[in-house]
Design a protein around this nucleic acid. Structure first.
Length: 105
DNA sequence: CAACTGACTCACT
DNA sequence: TAGTGAGCCAGTT
């Protein structure tokens, strides 16, 4: 078991995700960039996938470059994530958000 | 040490 | 407008 602690990269990712203010969202590439790992969008997604801080990290605020929620979402379905976002004031339409309005920059 | 996988992104057809 | 291919990064085996 190599867990019990996360990799430095994941720590940066979680930190960046936590930096996302309520009512805002960010793309995987955005997280990678603000975490100091430009172009590591895939690694970010992977880090969140194994996210041990689920519940502590608002991964539901992380969307892809299209503003769409993860199709293979692990929260319990896109519906759950959509509900969380809407509860924060983010308007989710057809499982997508308006990055121009809600993307944190 | 090398190879495979993946919640991604961009460009082309 | 939709689908496919190639590229980049980090982690795991």
């Amino acid at each position: 078991m190599t867990d019990r602690t996360v990799t430095p990269f994941a720590a940066d990712v979680y930190k960046a995700v936590t930096e996302i203010p309520k009512g805002k969202v960010a793309t995987y590439a955005q997280i990678a960039l603000m975490s100091g790992h430009r172009g590591a969008a895939r690694a970010v997604g992977n880090a969140l996938h194994v996210n041990p801080f689920f519940g502590s990290v608002p991964c539901h605020r992380v969307v892809n470059a299209s503003g769409a929620l993860a199709p293979d979402f692990a929260f319990g379905g896109v519906d759950a994530q959509k509900r969380l976002l809407q509860d924060e004031g983010v308007v989710v339409v057809d499982g997508r958000v308006d990055l121009e309005e809600y993307q944190y920059r």
